[in-house]
Design a protein around this nucleic acid. Structure first.
Length: 287
DNA sequence: TCTGGGGTCCTAGGACCC
DNA sequence: TCTGGGGTCCTAGGACCC
């Protein structure tokens, strides 16, 4: 897995061209906003203008890392993602503004970002199977998918105003373990929790942040899953403290009442305000 | 598919305060 | 003592993504 991360970092370095804004979505996916590098005035001309750059990136990734890459070019994230998925693993697809609506029509609603299994079923039941059906749907989508309705409608026409988010701010850190065999052995569970707490603590320390909330997750033999959390006043960084609160939550809510399939612990509630204080604490500890 | 791991966002209820 | 209404925080669950 580390090997994977190193490769990812190397490729992101290639993709992070000056003047462009990069949003890394996962180890193997990123959005690149190159609009600042374009000079053509018309939208579709601007998209076409980026084709040589996309070809260069694919070529460099192949020659320097020995890997193929799929690239999608479009006016927004929704379409760029669909374009890159269109031909894998070595594709280069451009969806122009002029062609986006017909391009979308035959695709399944499932291919839209934010439409998973559940939402797809809801839409299917209303007779909406393709994005074309979605475009033609006369009713109010809010009745089907709640507040996602208006956004879904706009997605259906290839409109998406989600910004590129280049910040690397994180909201939560967690770890979890699924056992080969369900267990309620306290010693094994504690050992597991302790290890997870250590990994989380290391990440917190490396980012110089502290967490105000600790969350424990358990899953039982029947796959039912529970989460319980606790918020404290002082930011936490120490593995021992994460572990202690994790154990406290387990006991408080009697979560180990039957064998566990999975146990996990996570932290959230980070803030700028805590980092300064933490720096002081860390400085003192290191003396 | 008998179901891994690490995330984000949304919703809804309840506590609490004014 | 009962009662409103709004705002915020905490909590839990679920849908979704990669």
């Amino acid at each position: 897995m580390n090997r994977y991360r190193e490769e990812s970092a190397a490729i992101m370095k290639i993709v992070a061209i000056p003047g462009a804004v990069l949003e890394q979505v996962s180890v193997d996916e990123a959005y690149l906003d190159v609009s600042a590098l374009c000079s053509e005035p018309k939208p579709d001309s601007r998209l076409a203008e980026t084709l040589p750059l996309a070809r260069d990136l694919k070529q460099i990734i192949l020659s320097e890392r020995g890997l193929t890459a799929s690239i999608g070019i479009a006016a927004n994230k929704l379409l760029a993602k669909l374009a890159s998925d269109f031909k894998k693993p070595d594709g280069l697809t451009l969806i122009s503004e002029r062609e986006k609506v017909p391009f979308l029509r035959p695709l399944s609603v499932r291919s839209i970002h934010g439409v998973g299994k559940v939402t797809q079923e809801v839409l299917n039941r209303a007779g909406i199977e393709t994005i074309g059906d979605l475009q033609d749907y006369p009713g109010d989508l809010r009745a089907l998918v709640g507040s996602f309705g208006p956004t879904l409608k706009r997605f259906g026409f290839g409109e998406d105003d989600r910004p590129i988010d280049s910040s690397d701010e994180i909201k939560s850190i967690s770890g979890e373990t699924t056992f080969l065999k369900d267990t309620e052995d306290r010693k094994q569970l504690r050992a597991c929790l302790r290890e997870q707490a250590q990994e989380i603590s290391a990440k917190l320390a490396s980012k110089q942040i502290g967490a105000l909330t600790v969350q424990v997750k358990v899953r039982y033999s029947d796959f039912s899953t529970l989460t319980r959390q606790l918020t404290v006043e002082e930011p936490i960084v120490d593995a021992a403290e994460i572990y202690r609160l994790g154990c406290h939550i387990l006991a408080r809510d009697r979560l180990v009442s039957r064998p566990l399939r999975l146990i996990g612990v996570g932290v959230s509630g980070f803030g700028e305000a805590y980092s300064k204080q933490l720096n002081l604490d860390l400085g003192r500890n290191h003396k």
